[in-house]
Design a protein around this nucleic acid. Structure first.
Lengths: 339, 339
DNA sequence: TTTTAATACTAAATCGGTTAACTGTAAATA
DNA sequence: TATTTACAGTTAACCGATTTAGTATTAAAA
């Protein structure tokens, strides 16, 4: 077990001060007028023995950790998992590591996690924030930490965020159902005051109202345990036997909804037409396949990391926060629905 | 932007040496005979101002970072995502953070990532190792790093691992198909020399041979791009028109397989019976639902973290490595297959 | 000839903790 | 009375880097 080399070992071996080594390794040789000769000698030796500076020591001194904290609702949800994956790739390419965690949409858990991230001196934060976290985020921002939100934003908080056009997405999907001739369209979603959910509900309501149809919104309490989501769904179907189409507010609730429909022997789309927010394999492979509102996952991840890197590279920048709103894609999978 | 308090600030404020503060905060007051009076005064002040020790400085001095490096094949794969989620929870509860990354089963990428983790002084490693990484893992172990492998292991490398009984799982699934009366059963999987894949193939082959049936194994090159997986699958179906049942080696390939079957208008299970490794929503919700080999995800995550925490708490322990092999569950979803 | 400037580095402080070794006093033991 | 022991802490070194301020030498400018 060879002990790791430190900058002092290198300095001693080459009879040079560690300051010089440090300057050379940080590309400040020119600026500090270190002779090319010496630079070469040092670089050669460093490569030879494979010396790597201790990043903890470096972080302690410089205050930068080259780490980004990523907080999503649940890393095992395919939507967040794929965004996390894309962010991870881009971050590594730019020399950043990711520390991630799942908030479960739980405010106090999230506060704890922010504390951990702070303590670990992450350089920047990417998060899909839960409700009630406004003050904590504001305090991060006040302390000069770059914060980029995605999937939703916090109305009072002035920071960058990337999201999609939720209102139009559900409006458009609902209109699509109406055009297909459905009259009793329900919207089933998680109970939430978050911006993305509020907008999704509003999009749906705007659409049904514009056609003089009745609005039926069912809100379900978020729960980790899938069974706890399915219970109220069963009730919903029993209480609303005349529903002919449903729009689900997230992939998770859409999946649970399909499971319950299976249980109850209700076929999509012959018995009840279904559209879900967030597209993924379950909907594509369902037979017949389920129409879904696909979020531009790559574009979201790209924008998130681009904006964050910008802030990281130009800390002082007081440019006003960017709000990027991306379009979704309604993937219509059953053109022959009802008519 | 109030600057963060350091231990020196606390010491000065209370007119005590920082050593004393450190002892008290690390629960060594008794041992170092610090008076209860002083302990209380310090604790009260620390709580009041919300002082939190700088973990970077702490790590630098102690060599421990309270971080675990988690390397999976692909964090956006539901199998790995759910294991990651469970490991995350357990790790946080025990005061550890997770740094994660996806290896893509790429050896040199993984080597890079190990380098990063090393550099960040992670306290332990959890990984689903790619091929060809034996030496790197051995060098980690030689340097005293706790390493726990899962999903597969490296035959020559003596370290703990958690996996499932792959051989029996595919043997059993194949037998099940045979019992249903299928005669032309194919096994479609990723090309790999990894232990889990080798065992899965062997389990299949043992089963078909034991009944004197023909073995048809199709190996597909792993690729990030789904289309690159579907091309050889299409070929496979065209070249083997008399196949009446397929066993897919992973959830990913199973999902792609179903997509291709959809394209080609082949129905599961009426045209071709299907069983896939790794159970998830896509298989549960497929109509009719697809039989799958479910891995005990919670048990895997539990065992992984338990073994790692044991090693972390007892570094010197030279107890010989544990090999834990868990059972899978064949979730039969179409009892009325053929007969 | 003296002053200034450029060259090529280095010493020491610093980041914020932990820890081995030590100090000074009072009471207990030899 | 002289020596231990217990008590209640403190001093200073250390982890491994970065960075500010400085030094010694030579060359150019005044």
């Amino acid at each position: 077990m060879k002990k790791k080399l430190s900058i002092v070992d290198i300095a001693n071996e080459l009879n040079v001060s560690k300051t010089t080594i440090s300057f050379i390794l940080n590309g400040r040789a020119q600026e500090k007028r270190i002779s090319n000769e010496l630079v070469e000698r040092v670089m050669k030796y460093v490569a030879e023995v494979g010396y790597k500076p201790n990043s903890l020591a470096k972080s302690l001194r410089t205050g930068k950790s080259n780490t980004i904290g990523l907080m999503v609702e649940d890393i095992s949800n395919p939507f967040f998992a794929s965004i996390a994956r894309l962010i991870e790739d881009r971050a590594y390419k730019n020399g950043y590591k990711i520390i991630y965690c799942s908030t479960d949409n739980d405010t106090s858990k999230t506060q704890d996690l922010i504390g951990m991230f702070r303590d670990r001196h992450v350089d920047g934060y990417i998060m899909a924030p839960p409700e009630g976290i406004e003050e904590d985020i504001e305090s991060l921002i006040k302390d000069g930490m770059p914060v980029v939100l995605f999937d939703r934003h916090l109305p009072g908080v002035k920071t960058d965020f990337i999201e999609i056009d939720n209102l139009f997405s559900t409006y458009n999907a609902t209109k699509h159902l109406i055009e297909q001739g459905f009259k009793n369209i329900a919207f089933v979603t998680f109970a939430s005051h978050q911006t993305q959910m509020v907008d999704r509900v509003k999009g749906y309501e705007d659409a049904v109202k514009s056609d003089g149809l009745k609005s039926t919104v069912k809100e379900i309490v978020f729960n980790q345990d899938e069974e706890q989501i399915m219970v109220p769904l069963r009730d919903f179907f029993k209480e609303n036997p005349n529903i002919d189409a449903i729009l689900f507010g997230t992939n998770h609730i859409g999946t649970c909804g399909l499971k319950v429909m299976n249980e109850l022997g209700k076929k999509a789309p012959t018995d009840i037409a279904v559209i879900s927010f967030d597209d993924y394999d379950v909907f594509k492979l369902h037979s017949p396949p389920v129409t879904a509102i696909a979020q531009p996952v790559e574009a979201i991840a790209d924008n998130v990391i681009t904006v964050l890197l910008e802030k990281l590279n130009d800390r002082s920048s007081s440019a006003k926060p960017q709000s990027i709103v991306l379009k979704t894609d309604l993937r219509i999978r059953n053109s022959s629905l009802k008519k």
